[in-house]
Write a protein that binds this DNA or RNA. Structure first.
Lengths: 353, 353
DNA sequence: CTTTAGCACTCTCACTCTTTGAGTGCTAAG
DNA sequence: CTTAGCACTCAAAGAGTGAGAGTGCTAAAG
């Protein structure tokens, strides 16, 4: 395994990503970074195939990278182009940092931006709500016998649910209920919203008044919502434009997204590239997935990434994901003051192309 | 144009919908409802082709219906099977009538149900919020310098938006602002939320305090949200399983859904079947769209329908749409009391297949 | 006048056979 | 170790063929 073989492997990956066609020795020999004859390239490619980094779709075709080939390329060979200042600014404006009042919004924007930039499906598993605190619970009457429960967390996520009761509550009942909820839930960390706690609450409430049971049920549902990781997808439709992905498999994937969460929530740090072969048999064939964790106060609180064809411009895409996860980490970790001061740069979103 | 020709046309449509293959004279002659020879059928088919109701993909193939053929079939020939009591109950349970506390939820459920039942994309354009009244406006502080505006309408739809201010508000400021909003917005019909009204509000607020401008802006955005028709889609992915729809066109359609609103909001009553040729050049080729209005208090307040391949079992699907729009009309028009009394039937959602 | 049987005709689809060209592996010489 | 040369392989594209489905037309029968 010498220098030149690695160069050839890198060239095969890059050519194949660019054209989608198996790469032959002639084309490689013509590349400026390779100055040996086609015959030499052939010898090297045969060796690379022996080592499991390349394969041939059929005898008389060029070579394409194997999974190991991609992995070696990603880990050691690719040279991601550094991002220019303008590029960073463009990414920032897509994040709409200044407009995003809440973490949730910020993360949503990141997902949309990633999907658009990479033309892949973007995914975020956000379990930061788990590390936030319930800052407000309200019960608001609206219409006949309908009540809205409102739940706000310190991270700014807002959940609500309308419940219909059998009878209208009197003012006293309502204020008692509201007060009780505030007292018992506000200030509680979301991760402490155990089933046990909710059961106690339910018991206490039911004792007071049967009629409220839909409300109590509503609260339980909301708390369950909060506790589980929010899985957000954007741009799944992008996948349909890739020829090497099977349309039916994409549909199946879209319908069974939840299965992804176990992959996303795997504990690891930094960035990770997964290929379909890595045991995750449910994913789309010929697809790969790039995920990166983001942190808050030193803890991993979520992961964001993309799912696309294996034939992906990793050198371009990985820096994007790294940049976004780093930016999100910065923005949600530090108190928002300083990031707001940047606001006077006032580079407002000119619509990009 | 005689009885028999119509029978043949209907048979062609039904066979083609069933098999997806062009229908030949032999197959038709074998049908029980047609008791003439294949030669006679051929003569009639030639006539039907002359009249523009049928066409041949190529000389030696069977016939398929043209758009006019479908239209004639739908308007005069098809015999929708009446729905059995169980079928109605199944539909009702998919609507989850008893669980749906708000109109919005009800309509969402209808969309999901339609998408699943018909295996098409289901769409709803709901402009009932326009006819409701703002029943509650609140401003809730949450976290440092972040405030959530909450807006609830009499129809039970809940909108919220988080805004970040430059400074924290004092308690007086907050309660003054809250009070001002309540006084000026609660009880107002959404359709009266003119730009003018909002401008007055803005002016009044700004005079009071510059610092609140993001909040005021937030309110304006929310009111704009409310005023515009909510367009909701479900099951777009279903479309990908139809062979006669072009995948790329589906993607384009998914990306430009908004263009549909003008079709959906067209004023008409009852049910309507549109084909791609009806001037709506942007829709997917070979697709058709079935829409029905639903009403509230005698007024059209929204439309729901499906988009699918032209080759669709209209006789089955149209009754579904009619049933849903009628049911929604009933449920949102009459005061909810009586519909709730049905609740004791207690046919709770056993998960359907 | 309408319906039907018969027949020649057309056109697609599936199959096979052939050609072409890209790309390879191997060998022998530089 | 590198390179030119050459025989070999294989997929993709094209051409030819036969089968089958379906048609339109004609002439006879009802």
């Amino acid at each position: 395994m010498n220098e030149r073989k690695l160069k050839i492997l890198a060239a095969v990956v890059e050519e194949y990503v660019r054209t989608g066609e198996p790469v032959g020795s002639k084309i490689l020999a013509a590349l400026p970074e390779i100055n040996v004859s086609a015959a030499t390239v052939r010898n090297d490619m045969a060796a690379l195939e022996q080592l499991g980094y390349l394969e041939q779709p059929h005898t008389s075709a060029g070579r394409i990278p194997t999974v190991s080939g991609y992995r070696l390329y990603i880990e050691q060979l690719m040279r991601p182009p550094g991002m220019s200042q303008e590029e960073k600014q463009k990414l920032d404006s897509m994040l709409a940092i200044h407009g995003s009042a809440t973490e949730e919004l910020l993360i949503q924007n990141a997902t949309t931006a990633l999907a658009e930039l990479t033309q892949c499906a973007a995914v975020v598993s956000d379990f930061s709500p788990q590390f936030s605190v319930i800052s407000k619970v309200e019960v608001i009457p609206t219409g006949k016998r309908v009540y809205v429960i409102l739940l706000i967390t310190s991270a700014g996520s807002i959940k609500n649910k309308a419940c219909r009761l059998e009878f209208d509550l009197t003012n006293e009942q309502l204020s008692w209920f509201s007060g009780y909820l505030s007292e018992n839930l506000e200030g509680i960390s979301v991760s402490d919203l155990s089933d046990e706690l909710m059961e106690n609450l339910t018991a206490a409430m039911s004792a007071y008044m049967m009629a409220m049971s839909p409300l109590v049920q509503g609260i339980c549902e909301l708390s369950r919502d909060l506790r589980q990781h929010a899985l957000l997808f954007k741009g799944e439709k992008n996948l349909f434009s890739y020829q090497d992905l099977d349309k039916m498999e994409i549909v199946r994937f879209i319908e069974h997204k939840d299965e992804l969460s176990r992959l996303l929530d795997d504990s690891f740090s930094g960035i990770k590239v997964l290929f379909r072969e890595d045991k995750n048999s449910f994913v789309i064939g010929n697809s790969s997935m790039i995920v990166s964790k983001y942190r808050k106060g030193g803890k991993n609180v979520g992961s964001l990434g993309i799912i696309g064809p294996m034939r992906l411009d990793y050198a371009k895409v990985i820096p994007y994901i790294e940049y976004f996860s780093q930016k999100i980490t910065d923005l949600i970790s530090e108190p928002p003051e300083p990031s707001l001061e940047e606001g006077h740069i006032k580079k407002e979103g000119e619509p990009h192309d």
